[in-house]
Design a protein around this nucleic acid. Structure first.
Length: 431
RNA sequence: UCCGGUGUAGCUCAACCGGCAGAGCGGGUGGCUGUUAACCACUAGGUUGUAGGUUCGAGUCCUACCACCGGAGCCA
């Protein structure tokens, strides 16, 4: 009885007989010789089938086997330079589990719309598979980083009663007899959490009903959001910088094969070094002016502006101290310059733009009340949030990192839609 | 929501000035003992996004709508 093996570990079975179970990825023939490329989710290997080694019936069936048909293959694992990956299976027995219908995705080119309609099948393709393996590695690295620093995972709710940055971008849902909204950030819930646990983070999906149709937007995306008590803007930036370095080290160590599959040139990733450049809003404005941007001083940075700035550096750049009126109400004003806030946006290199937004939170009760009034937000809804400033208020800070934008940068993909298994976009809710 | 673009075979695309709707891939059949997106031969496959209009004649021109792509604003 042959041992069951995964394709990724076949190198350990050279000279032995194994059984692999998977799907037919591609097939080529040469008369009495048949090559079956088989994938099992862990990798791809070619099985070689000689007509004389199996029954006439099995060979006949395999000759007509359709793409993505499922099967068990038993045979000897052998090293062979002619095989991709360096080893192959010399098939002795093949058991067909299911003969697939004509598979819509072929090795030739396809359009985005067609592939997105077939997203559930596209996941099987090697590049999509590799991107999602890297996504997995990045997510695991985020958790390991914060867990290693003794953060506590504190999940934030998905249903929320009110917005933290206005209601126009929120998805409204019926919640029995009242209205609720899908969360657009867990931050407001992390702040009280930081007062209870010191260092916390949440990791989950967030929802924004923005009618944006760009390569950087999804209506449902994942964020990791740490929040730390007794923390100022600079310490917050140190934490963010450490997270990015931790992630990069992990993917460069563990995901070389996947980078090769997606043809990502990793030299830009290897160039990223601490400390990341830190510039304030005025310096950013100067860079944009010199670059001839149509940027208006006092406004938020546009997508194109972020690209101009991030392309100037090898490492992610942190832009701080934005004008208070372009940022959210909870940000703490700079005591040195009250029209500015103690915030930070991290812009990824190679023109990828913002992947992290965060900063120090307003910790004074009266000031925060005035800000909520100024932004015309419903005071009742923030009563619990204000309590953080009533019972032992301390300086605290945090940030949110968008997973899909981070994956898009690290994988060198132009669009975030390939960095999440099932993207939700303005005009796509299916599959 | 605004600006620009594209809709032709299962997929990716051709079709000149308005004049017989075509190729490659994929599918099917057959051939080939080392293929890597194999190769060779044969073969099936079409309401040209939808509705209307102009014309002897529309894939092609006009109008509206729909779908998608790229960009803007907003944001991670």
């Amino acid at each position: 009885m042959a041992a069951k093996a995964f394709i990724s570990e076949l190198k350990n079975y050279i000279g032995q007989e194994v059984t692999i179970s998977g799907w037919l990825y591609n097939k080529t023939g040469k008369g009495k010789l048949l090559f079956l490329m088989v994938r099992d989710g862990s990798g791809i290997v070619q099985a070689v089938l000689f007509k004389n080694d199996v029954s006439e019936e099995v060979f006949e069936k395999c000759q007509h086997l359709t793409m993505e048909s499922s099967l068990h293959i038993t045979g000897l694992v052998a090293e062979d330079k002619r095989a991709k990956g360096g080893c192959e299976i010399q098939a002795k027995a093949i058991q067909i589990v299911h003969i697939a219908d004509e598979y819509p995705i072929t090795p030739k080119e396809h359009g985005t719309d067609f592939l997105m309609d077939n997203r559930h099948l596209w996941l099987r393709s090697s590049k999509q598979h590799a991107i999602l393996k890297i996504r997995h590695e990045i997510i695991k690295a985020c958790r390991d980083y914060f867990d290693g620093l003794n953060f506590t995972l504190l999940d934030a709710p998905i249903f929320t009663p009110a917005a933290c940055e206005g209601t126009t971008n929120l998805f409204e849902v019926n919640y029995f007899d009242e209205k609720a909204y899908l969360t657009q950030s867990g931050q407001l819930y992390m702040e009280p959490g930081a007062m209870a646990f010191g260092k916390v983070y949440c990791f989950g999906p967030t929802f924004r009903a923005e009618k944006s149709k760009t390569r950087r937007h999804l209506t449902e995306f994942w964020m990791v959001e740490p929040e730390v008590a007794f923390c100022d803007l600079n310490q917050d930036m140190d934490l963010a910088e450490g997270l990015i370095m931790f992630i990069l080290n992990r993917v460069l160590e563990n995901r070389r094969d996947e980078f090769q599959i997606i043809e990502r040139d990793i030299t830009p990733l290897e160039k990223v070094k601490k400390p990341f450049p830190r510039i304030d809003y005025d310096e950013a404005a100067k860079i944009l002016k010199e670059a001839g941007s149509e940027f208006v001083y006092g406004d938020d940075l546009g997508g194109g502006d972020e690209t101009i700035i991030s392309e100037k550096y090898d490492s992610p750049v942190m832009v701080t101290h934005y004008p208070a009126n372009v940022k959210a109400f909870y940000m703490k004003n700079d005591p040195q310059r009250p029209d500015r806030v103690l915030c930070v946006d991290m812009l990824a290199p190679e023109g990828y733009g913002e992947i992290i937004g965060g900063g120090q939170r307003e910790d004074d009760y009266e000031t925060l009340v005035k800000k909520i009034e100024y932004h015309k937000l419903p005071m009742d809804a923030f009563k619990w949030y204000l309590d953080v400033r009533k019972y032992g208020s301390v300086p605290h800070a945090g940030f949110g990192m968008g997973i899909e934008r981070t994956v898009a940068w690290i994988c060198g993909r132009s669009h975030v839609r390939e960095t999440i298994p099932y993207p939700r976009m303005l005009y796509r809710l299916y599959p």
